[in-house]
Simulated scan of single mutants.
Amino acid sequence: MTEILKEYQVILIDKNQKNNNPVLTPSFWEKANCLTDFCSPWKTDSFSKIEFKALHDSENFYFNFRVFDTDIYIDQKDNSFASIGNSDRVELFFRTNESLNPYYCLEIDTSGRIMDFKALPGKDFDFSWKWPKNDIEVKTLKDETSFIVEGRISIQSLKDLNLIQNNTIEAGVFRAKFSLVENLQYEPTWISWVNPNTETPNFHIASSFGKFVLMS
């Protein structure tokens, strides 16, 4: 049985628009569809509003997370993946197909640190793998009400990894929110665009993915 994936339409823009409007300019994102239907199926607590937007042109896929939260936790003991993994962050996963063999993960904290890795089913992670450096760029911004994590990924790198098929990218969109509970211990709330219908939090599963349709 073929799964029916939740869908987000990625609007096409003229690549010249990027040159006039650098990333982090609000007007750049005016044409984008705004995705806000996130859930945290494993907790009853409310969580801060999240807006996700994406655009594409002939050269790049652009993404923008705006999270209406100013109580941000960053583990700053070092710049290791473990440190990023203990910090408030947003996440984009891309898969080649439903079998998750392989899929690719980008986890980005509010200071712009990237945890990028290749994965196989069963949480088999290859942390030595890196997204090609010239093919990804990330910027962050904080204001009085929110933080923004946004960036660009080259279309060529997505094609090279076999992640664009029939103008569609199968993707997961997530957030990890760390809150102080007691004794200086922080606990995560896991937030997802697609409800994976698992008993415990798990993004590394086929049911946590939807699809980005690259409009023409």
Score class of each variant (00 low, 15 high):
89 R>F: 10
213 V>M: 11
190 W>V: 08
129 W>I: 14
80 S>Y: 06
209 F>V: 10
176 A>P: 00
43 K>C: 09
216 S>I: 13
104 Y>G: 04
24 L>F: 06
75 D>Y: 07
105 C>V: 15
127 F>Q: 09
207 S>W: 02
1 M>S: 14
30 E>M: 13
69 D>Q: 10
7 E>C: 08
39 C>D: 01
169 I>W: 00
97 N>C: 11
214 L>S: 07
9 Q>Y: 14
100 L>R: 02
148 I>K: 03
190 W>M: 12
38 F>K: 06
190 W>I: 13
116 D>G: 11
123 K>Y: 04
73 Y>L: 13
205 I>D: 01
144 E>L: 12
51 E>F: 08
149 V>A: 00
28 F>L: 15
183 N>T: 06
188 P>E: 07
180 L>M: 05
160 D>N: 15
63 F>R: 02
89 R>G: 14
25 T>L: 12
122 G>M: 06
36 T>F: 00
127 F>P: 03
141 L>F: 09
206 A>Q: 07
155 I>H: 04
179 S>M: 08
201 P>G: 01
141 L>P: 00
169 I>P: 01
155 I>A: 04
160 D>Y: 09
109 D>R: 00
53 K>C: 11
75 D>V: 09
85 G>S: 14
80 S>W: 06
89 R>Q: 13
169 I>H: 01
113 R>S: 00
83 S>D: 06
197 N>Y: 10
32 A>Q: 11
132 P>K: 11
41 P>R: 06
170 E>L: 15
130 K>F: 07
21 N>V: 10
87 S>L: 10
24 L>W: 01
169 I>R: 02
177 K>L: 14
193 W>G: 04
175 R>F: 04
129 W>R: 08
185 Q>D: 12
211 K>M: 09
40 S>M: 13
106 L>I: 03
183 N>V: 03
52 F>M: 07
169 I>K: 00
190 W>G: 02
41 P>I: 08
119 A>D: 04
96 T>G: 09
137 E>R: 11
18 K>Y: 15
25 T>M: 12
25 T>V: 14
93 F>Q: 13
91 E>I: 15
86 N>K: 13
164 I>G: 05
163 L>R: 03
185 Q>W: 08
146 S>L: 05
87 S>K: 07
165 Q>I: 12
207 S>D: 08
51 E>D: 08
188 P>G: 05
122 G>F: 06
46 S>Q: 11
17 Q>K: 15
9 Q>A: 13
89 R>Y: 06
168 T>C: 11
91 E>W: 05
44 T>H: 07
23 V>S: 02
199 E>W: 03
95 R>M: 15
189 T>F: 06
155 I>K: 14
5 L>S: 01
44 T>E: 14
211 K>L: 05
124 D>V: 12
124 D>F: 07
2 T>M: 09
150 E>M: 11
77 K>R: 13
25 T>E: 14
37 D>G: 03
62 Y>K: 04
178 F>R: 07
62 Y>C: 07
76 Q>A: 10
4 I>R: 06
152 R>N: 09
113 R>C: 01
55 L>W: 11
144 E>H: 11
113 R>A: 01
114 I>T: 02
31 K>S: 12
26 P>V: 10
42 W>A: 05
166 N>A: 12
151 G>I: 13
94 F>L: 12
210 G>R: 02
161 L>G: 01
123 K>D: 05
131 W>K: 03
3 E>F: 13
85 G>Q: 14
107 E>K: 14
128 S>T: 14
